[in-house]
């Protein structure tokens, strides 16, 4: 009998060492019944994408507080395409200015959750977006 679980990689790219937000979202998604693969700090986009593929993740959540979100989102999304894995959803959070969000969504990010977003918003988004992905 099939029993599918939503699997999400939560990753922290680059040098910023603040993983509190990543841990809060990981915990909230776990409590919503999902399996969270936590990569730890200072991941390269290559490592994040390899992890997502090996873990057969449905989605990758990227937490960036350093201001380098444009670079990291673009690189992760490009690498997923390169590896024929663009069906894996990309979402993110952290300190990301409102004005930058449309650009990230255009790039291919599925959703960006800025500071103060209740964790339930991310849960609801994943519960809808994961079954709908191709």
């Amino acid at each position: 009998m099939s029993d599918k679980k939503i699997r999400v990689v939560i990753a922290k790219p680059g040098l910023d060492g603040h993983d509190r937000g990543a841990k809060v979202i990981a915990r909230a998604l776990r409590d919503a019944g999902m399996e969270i693969i936590y990569t730890g700090l200072r991941q390269t986009p290559e490592q994040i994408v390899t992890t997502a593929i090996q873990e057969d993740a449905d989605a990758v959540g990227i937490s960036v507080l350093s201001g380098a979100h444009q670079f990291y989102f673009k690189r992760v999304i490009d690498l997923l395409k390169e590896k024929n894995a663009s069906d894996i959803l990309v979402f993110g959070g952290g300190v990301i200015p409102e004005d930058d969000i449309p650009g990230l969504l255009d790039m291919g990010a599925g959703a960006i959750f800025g500071p103060g977003t209740p964790t339930s918003t991310a849960i609801e988004w994943l519960e809808k977006a994961v079954p709908a992905r191709t």
């Binding site: 998604l29 409590d31 919503a32 969270i36 693969i37 936590y38 990569t39 730890g40």
Partner: peptide, 21 residues
């Protein structure tokens, strides 16, 4: 896995992540 929600935080990779590449 959580016996209540079925969710899990899988963090074993954390200590092996240098082999990811």
């Amino acid at each position: 896995s959580s016996p209540y929600t079925g969710g899990a935080i899988l963090a074993d990779r954390l200590r092996m992540q240098r082999h990811t590449d």
